[in-house]
């Protein structure tokens, strides 16, 4: 045994540092291999996701595939009945015959886990199911964190990211977006007793909160001076943020209007207050170079809007139908939460 020689740790560490420096130079030198890497992504991503479904949670996967089988059956009958949209062919799929739609499963009423069944449910999920049915594709619904959702999308692991994404100008540089599938805005979520407060018009002296990394957080941080709130706290998710609000740790949350309305409708302790600001569309996101795939899905979305399917899905999850702008960069479709029929 050479116990004595192990102790020359310092020299070893210095040599390792030198080695690492040399390695990082080498990596930098061959950093332009992205295209080659992308090619292999195309092939491997399919396997990756197939594996994910098999491995992740056996039972859920089984349940989901049962459901999908049901749905396929439905779509088959629809085709037999001569449904016209079966003509849409979706190009550039990650895996042949499958539509892999990634969501977060943590953003009700857009995507949320049903506590009784474990199924992923919500507005964007119903849209994904409808698209899969109309294009005759088998639907896969992996769930990941929002950061990993966008990262995985740009790496070609998923066909569509569909958790209610705001196609901001910055994001439009990195992703291709579908036509809008709803519009929403930002509103103040408050405790029921504060329902008459000014909301995002005036937060003077109040403690504000939001969800870390959300566009609603970005809004409130950018407008700190105008809003005049005392302190801002960012929470990991809607569950934590709403609990902190109910406990009085914060007085108002900067929330997505539709999420806030949903929370208020389902919890008597919560309300919304003040005007909706920064109205904007939400769209489905695609890998940047996948415009063909996006265009095919746009055809289906337009059909869903024309035949009233989208409005029906909106009524299911939002309790009302909401005007949808035609273009991601269109002017704000509303400044207050709209009421009544479209």
């Amino acid at each position: 045994m050479t116990y004595g020689r192990v102790t020359s740790g310092n020299t070893i560490l210095w040599r390792l540092l030198a080695l690492l420096a040399a390695l990082s130079l080498a990596v930098a030198a061959c950093g332009d291999d992205d295209e080659a890497a992308d090619e292999s992504t195309e092939e491997t991503a399919a396997e990756t996701d197939a594996g994910a479904e098999e491995e992740a949670t056996d039972d859920t996967a089984a349940e989901e595939s049962e459901e999908m089988a049901d749905e396929e059956a439905e779509s088959d009958t629809a085709e037999d009945a001569g449904a016209d949209s079966a003509a849409v062919v979706v190009p550039g799929l990650v895996e042949e015959g499958k539509l892999i739609v990634v969501t977060t499963g943590n953003f009700p009423p857009f995507t949320a886990i049903n506590p009784d069944t474990g199924d992923n449910e919500g507005y964007t999920i119903d849209i994904a199911k409808e698209i899969a049915a109309r294009t005759g594709l088998e639907l896969e619904l992996p769930t990941v964190d929002f950061v990993a959702e966008l990262e995985g999308l740009s790496q070609g692991l998923y066909d569509i990211a569909d958790s209610g994404i705001w196609p901001t100008p910055e994001r439009q540089e990195s992703f291709a977006f579908s036509r809008p599938m709803t519009s929403t805005g930002i509103i103040a979520q408050v405790r029921a007793e504060d329902a008459d407060s000014a909301g995002l018009e005036d937060l003077t002296g109040l403690n504000a909160g939001g969800i870390q990394g959300s566009s609603q957080e970005a809004y409130i941080l950018e407008n700190e001076e105008a809003l005049g709130y005392a302190e801002y706290s960012g929470f990991a998710g809607a569950g934590e943020a709403l609990t902190a609000l109910k406990q009085g740790r914060v007085d108002a949350l900067s929330q997505d209007s539709l999420v806030a309305a949903f929370a208020a409708a389902n919890d008597p302790e919560l309300a919304i207050a003040g005007p909706t600001v920064a109205a904007h569309p939400l769209s489905l996101a695609f890998q940047l170079e996948m415009e063909d795939k996006r265009d095919a899905i746009d055809v289906v979305l337009n059909e869903m809007i024309e035949d009233g399917t989208l409005a029906e899905i909106q009524k299911t999850w939002f309790g009302q139908c909401i005007p949808v702008p035609d273009d991601n960069n269109a002017v704000e479709p509303y400044t207050e939460l709209p009421a009544g029929d479209c």
Binding site: A56, T57, I113, P115, T143, A148, G239
Partner: peptide, 18 residues
Amino acid sequence: IGLTELTGRSRQLANSTF
């Protein structure tokens, strides 16, 4: 990275049920 193990699933449930 998208595995719905105990913590990930609990976080989803926590935010789904508030």
